[in-house]
């Protein structure tokens, strides 16, 4: 199939992009790497009248850091993160996750912000950023606002973004030196979206002990106090988290997500597969 006809604009700054989206009155769509939107256009699952290409916006390609946080422009590609081109504020978590997204060809074009805005529950960034309790920076006609990533995503392929609003960047709090993380995903084939994701982060200095049951049927399920899963893996507690994520009824989903949590914990503690 071929995409339905659409207009194309490539604005130079965020304000211009927002103006274009406002003018499109809900029929505009933002494109960056196009790794999900491209196929959706070709399958005519998305038929926008206007595509706003944000890759020419310098601010959205920028990375800035402070002692407390790292701010990553929405147009930063998976490959840039994989290749260590960003300051490492996450003790290696971001590059490790980036390196395992789909194939290199996808990583060369696909972007962090595009993945988050697309909001596929099985996507790596959706779950990793929820684990990190990252903040999404949005800009619309009324100005900027900030939302926790956990509030940004509303459901499968649904976010807090208004029709004329842009995801500009993501801010991640810097992990302390003592922080440890574990991430495990299961894909039937290399490059496929995950069947199950388990992720955990322990950062005692910042009093953080979080876990994520990922690749759910909706938003990532965050366990904000995950001591019973992360510090010492207690199977009953892990199963409770899987059930709380709405995955308790289907035996396959239950088992896969349980195993993903178990293996993420094992990886964090320096073992397991």
């Amino acid at each position: 199939m071929k995409a339905a006809a659409f207009d194309y604009e490539k604005p130079a700054d965020v304000a211009a992009a927002v103006k274009l989206l406002s003018g499109a009155q809900g029929m505009g769509k933002v494109i960056a790497g196009g790794q999900s939107l491209g196929p959706m256009l070709n399958l005519r699952l998305a038929q926008p009248q206007l595509l706003v290409d944000v890759r020419g916006i310098a601010e959205m390609c920028a990375v800035t850091e402070t002692p407390e946080a790292l701010t990553i422009g929405a147009c930063v590609t998976h490959a840039r993160i994989e290749d260590g081109k960003l300051p490492d504020a996450t003790r290696g978590l971001l590059p490790a996750v980036a390196a395992d997204i789909a194939y290199r060809a996808v990583r060369n074009r696909g972007t962090l912000g595009g993945s988050l805005a697309h909001a596929d529950p099985a996507a790596d960034w959706v779950n990793t950023l929820a684990l990190l309790d990252a903040v999404a920076i949005l800009q619309g006609p009324a100005g900027r606002r900030e939302l926790k990533v956990t509030e940004f995503m509303h459901g499968p392929f649904a976010t807090a973004l208004a029709e004329d609003e842009l995801l500009v960047a993501v801010r991640i709090a810097r992990l302390s030196k003592a922080a440890r993380w574990g991430y495990y995903k299961f894909c039937r084939k290399t490059g496929e979206f995950a069947e199950a994701i388990g992720a955990m982060l322990v950062d005692p200095e910042r009093k953080v002990c979080r876990a994520v049951v990922g690749a759910t049927t909706s938003v990532p399920h965050v366990v904000a106090d995950a001591r019973a899963i992360a510090e010492r893996f207690m199977p009953d507690e892990a199963l409770k988290a899987v059930e709380a994520a709405g995955l308790g009824d289907d035996p396959y989903e239950r088992q896969m997500h349980f195993a993903a949590l178990k293996r993420a914990a094992a990886r964090m503690h320096g073992g397991g597969s």
Partner: peptide, 13 residues
């Protein structure tokens, strides 16, 4: 209905 759902084996498999 797409190769995201229908999985021929790839090289790594």
């Amino acid at each position: 209905s797409t190769l995201a759902d229908y999985m021929p084996p790839d090289r790594p498999k």
